[in-house]
Simulated scan of single mutants.
Amino acid sequence: MAEQSIWMRKVAADPDHSTWFIERFRSMARAGDDLAGEARLVDAMLPRHARILDAGCGSGRVGGALAEAGHDVVGVDVDPALIEAAEQDHPGPRWLVGDLAELDLPAQGVTTPFDAVVCAGNVMTFLAPTTRRDVLRHFRTHLAPDGRAVIGFGAGRGYEFDEFFADAAAGALEPDLLLSTWDLRPFRKDSSFLVALLRPA
């Protein structure tokens, strides 16, 4: 069994953490905030009706927007409270409780491969460090040969970008395009955020 994620450790320490997270994004949606930037990037790189895995989907913000754009979305998150919120707020995609470090969607009756895997919202930094390479390997396993994984997270969260690139290489994923924001600004050595589009090596 995989080491418990940093996210679930936070939930164990504060049982209201998931509720706070869910309400935070519901409040932002009610205020009319733009919550679909990641989904717009992923939508732009795919044809209509693409198959997308929203890995670490949270309460469904990104996967829900991609489903509304006409894609076939499966979302997976380790936190049952977030999956319940995704089902309530974004009906349509298939939302599953699951640990990304042990991801085996065919065993759950989900047909693979996917045209894209999206992992937004700093999910990579909430994983247990010992599971990061396993998670990236699972992303590669679930991707179509010409598919891409789109992964975004910020600096200063305990996961250095160089370490991520090494982990991705170990998982047979290589950079296709590196950005510093979801609105397509180029990645530089001093960038405080990374959006990595990775292809199977």
Rank of each mutant, 00 (worst) to 15 (best):
Q4C: 07
I6W: 04
W7T: 13
V11C: 02
A12M: 12
A12E: 15
D14K: 04
S18T: 15
W20V: 14
W20E: 15
I22E: 04
E23R: 12
R24M: 15
F25P: 13
S27Y: 08
S27H: 14
M28K: 15
A29T: 06
R30H: 12
R30W: 05
G32N: 09
L35E: 07
V42E: 07
H49D: 13
A50E: 13
R61W: 10
L66S: 08
A67W: 13
A69K: 12
G70T: 11
G70W: 02
H71A: 06
V73E: 04
V73D: 05
V74W: 11
D77I: 10
A86Y: 11
A86T: 10
E87C: 03
G92I: 14
P93E: 12
R94V: 12
L96E: 09
G98D: 04
P106Y: 14
D115R: 08
A116L: 03
V117G: 14
C119W: 07
A120Y: 07
A120P: 06
N122E: 12
F126S: 13
T131W: 05
R133G: 10
D134V: 04
V135F: 03
L136S: 09
A144M: 09
D146K: 08
R148C: 07
F153P: 06
G158H: 07
E160P: 11
F161R: 01
F165S: 05
A170C: 03
E174V: 06
P175Y: 05
L177A: 07
L179E: 00
S180R: 00
S180A: 00
S180M: 00
T181H: 01
L184R: 14
R185K: 14
R185A: 10
K189H: 12
K189Q: 14
D190P: 01
S192K: 03
S192R: 10
V195F: 01
